[in-house]
Amino acid sequence: MEWRIRLALRQQQWHQAGQWISLLPESHRAKPRWRYWQARTWSLQSIKPEKTLQMLQQLASERHYYGFLAADIVQQDYDFNHSALISGQSGSDVSLSPEITRARQFYQMGYFVPARREWAAATRSFDQSQLIDATHLAHQWGWHQQAIHTTIKADSWNDLSIRFPLAYQADMIVSAESATINPEWLYAITRQESAFAKDAYSPAGATGLMQLLPGTAKQVAERMGVSYTNRDLFSADKNIALGSNYLKQLLDDFSGNRILATAAYNAGPHRVKSWLNRQAAALPHDIWIETLPFYETRNYVQNVLAFSVIYGHRLGIDSPLINTEESSIGQP
């Protein structure tokens, strides 16, 4: 059913798209994605104005991609819904757990795999309050990946300082300035790629904080005129420097459009160019993103755009979800 909706959106058949949405199971229609598109199709048909406004205003009070899209439409400030986690409510000191102790020792020695194994063993039986205490521990150690994952396991989503940490801040700011890209975008890409795990390694060989492929990193290093070995990708400062310069390269390749550059970072620039070449006409940004052929890239772009807004907030930067020049994508 969802592919039918996306096809109708792509063809800008608003009535048809709205009909397909109405046939979704109620649990699906309640999701932010389809609430947004239900309101959007009503708006584009100039029908149900009161329901449309009500639905968009409700979405605009939520912190996610569709909430930020809705906030832009109704000209409402973004709502970040930050709420700090309160530790010390579990009645026990989770730091005394033998597994937590071993996890900390392994982590501090740089043995991340056994550290994660011990952490998983410890938190498997924790209740929510213990998970929150453990989240604070990982955050204090600078082990951001585990702090992020553990707060999700605790079903606690609103402490932005933990879920969106300003990790490696000096390197991130310097590299963003050097590459002349927005630091909030650099943070958003890194958060999406690895959750700040500098030892991250994918089956495809993508490595480090920004999940760079060695071949890509080598090409970027050559353009930068710096020395390079594959081991450099496990070094936070070098990975960030290479990744930020690659983002700048993609941004230039796509005429400063972060949406296209973000999609290219995930799916590859040649694939994004092929999608654009198959377009008969320009599309609104939200439709172009919603109808991307790869599920992974669609969610990736949506997450990065939303994370950019949140990191702008964390850095004290007014960062819109979509820039004016990004509002239409494809051939004019």
Rank of each mutant, 00 (worst) to 15 (best):
A264F: 12
T123A: 14
I310V: 14
T207N: 05
L96G: 07
L233W: 12
E193D: 07
F164H: 11
N230G: 14
R63L: 03
D72A: 01
Q219G: 08
L24W: 05
S227E: 07
D318V: 06
F234A: 08
Q146I: 05
D93W: 02
A261W: 02
M55L: 15
F126C: 13
A241V: 08
I181W: 13
G312V: 02
A122N: 10
N230W: 03
A261N: 04
S43G: 06
I289T: 05
S255P: 01
I317N: 11
V304F: 03
N230S: 10
Q45E: 14
D286P: 01
W288E: 04
Y300G: 09
L276P: 00
R117F: 06
S46P: 00
P320L: 05
W143K: 05
W20H: 09
A154S: 13
T297L: 12
T135D: 05
L166Q: 05
I289P: 07
S202F: 05
G88Q: 10
R116L: 12
S156M: 06
N266D: 02
G268K: 08
V301S: 10
R116E: 15
Q76L: 07
E296I: 01
E184L: 03
W14C: 02
D77K: 14
T291C: 15
R314Q: 15
A170D: 11
R314F: 01
Q58C: 06
R10M: 08
Q279T: 01
G215W: 03
H285L: 03
Q128D: 12
L59A: 04
Q58A: 14
F68E: 04
I5L: 10
N277W: 07
M224R: 05
N257P: 02
W34M: 09
D232C: 11
E222W: 07
S328D: 02
Y66W: 15
M1V: 03
W42M: 05
G312S: 10
Q12L: 09
L213Y: 01
T123R: 14
S125H: 12
I317Y: 07
A103P: 00
G91L: 07
L137Y: 02
P320Y: 01
Y300R: 08
R102Y: 00
Q12Y: 08
A267S: 11
D77M: 04
F68S: 08
T101Q: 14
Q38R: 11
L242W: 06
V113Q: 15
Q13I: 02
W37N: 11
R314P: 05
Y228K: 01
I289L: 09
W157N: 09
A195F: 09
N277F: 08
A264M: 06
E193A: 11
V226D: 04
S202T: 06
G18Y: 04
M210P: 00
I100D: 07
T216D: 05
